[in-house]
């Protein structure tokens, strides 16, 4: 039971990290109709910057704020240098350019910070564990991540549901032509979405850094998971991204143990040892295929 609870909490925490990465990206995909493969590097850059800021200042909070703002600035810089020029140029050019950015920035990171993995310590204040049932504990830091993730999600819901820019974003997600008709400054909106999206991804990178090792490939698989979240939730829908992120997080952690247990129960041990892990790592993608087979536009998608 406790193990299940721990798995569920881990799933929610993974989901919220994915949401922070996917929230900005789904708007870039949906409202701007722009394919940005390089969004994951913001997550990685955020983590690396946090390590540097922490080494310089010794303060986790300062590292968090500084690295988030810096990745936001990086997002704006990339927007001005590259993305802006690729608006409305078709998905293929965007894929080519943003893949080039992945290579470039990945190598820059290796050049600056070296190839060996770095560590960011868990802030002392949050280093304890909360006791759960039967003597097991759950790290305070992970609980803090869940709280912060939920807070950001709530804030985004407010911005998107209650403000003018939020209304424009929602209109844009369902009908891009309408944004123009509404007389919205599309370039300003593009900058805003990129800047905030990059900042959120960097923010997620800083928060995740104490739990993982900070290295050049750290964002590669997360980026793919963020894509899954976006597509399952429905491209352009932040609410969809939130729900899909939690689902994907849960499927990855709970489903993994469930499938392994099922395989052990149903199959001879040898076969179970093979099938269990294989199925477990494919689970998220099976989940995505199942969702899209039934709802080609995703859970909250407005456009197929």
């Amino acid at each position: 039971m406790t193990l299940l609870l721990v798995q569920a909490l881990n799933g929610v925490q993974l989901g919220l990290t994915l949401f922070l990465i996917a929230a900005g990206l789904t708007l870039v995909f949906g409202v701007m109709d722009f394919i940005n493969l390089a969004h994951g590097v913001q997550y990685m850059v955020g983590a690396y910057l946090a390590v540097s800021f922490y080494d310089a200042s010794g303060s986790f909070l300062l590292a968090l704020v500084g690295a988030s703002l810096a990745t936001g600035a990086l997002g704006l810089l990339l927007e001005a240098l590259v993305f802006r020029r690729l608006m409305g140029r078709g998905h293929l050019d965007q894929v080519l350019a943003t893949f080039g950015l992945i290579l470039t920035i990945g190598e820059l990171v290796r050049l600056i910070w070296g190839t060996s993995p770095l560590q960011l310590p868990v802030p002392r204040l949050l280093s304890g564990a909360v006791p759960l049932m039967s003597g097991m504990g759950y790290p305070v830091y992970r609980i803090m991540l869940i709280v912060v993730g939920l807070a950001v999600a709530g804030l985004m819901a407010l911005v998107i549901g209650r403000t003018k820019i939020g209304m424009q974003l929602r209109a844009g997600a369902s009908n891009a032509a309408m944004v123009n008709a509404l007389g919205v400054d599309i370039h300003r909106m593009f900058r805003l979405v990129f800047g905030v999206g990059a900042m959120l991804a960097g923010f997620a990178g800083v928060l995740a850094a104490p739990l993982v090792s900070v290295e050049a490939g750290m964002s590669d698989n997360l980026l793919i998971l963020a894509f899954v979240v976006i597509v399952v939730g429905g491209v352009g829908s932040v609410r969809g991204a939130f729900i899909a992120a939690i689902l994907v997080g849960l499927v990855d952690t709970l489903g993994r143990s469930l499938v392994t247990a099922l395989a052990l129960a149903l199959l001879p041990p040898m076969a179970a040892g093979h099938v269990g892990p294989a199925l477990a790592s494919m689970l998220i993608y099976l989940f995505m295929a199942a969702v899209l087979a039934v709802r080609p536009a995703g859970l909250f998608g407005v456009r197929a």
Partner: peptide, 12 residues
Amino acid sequence: TRGVNFIMITLA
């Protein structure tokens, strides 16, 4: 599926 979704599902 279409567009972005096709790109992403083939990736998945």
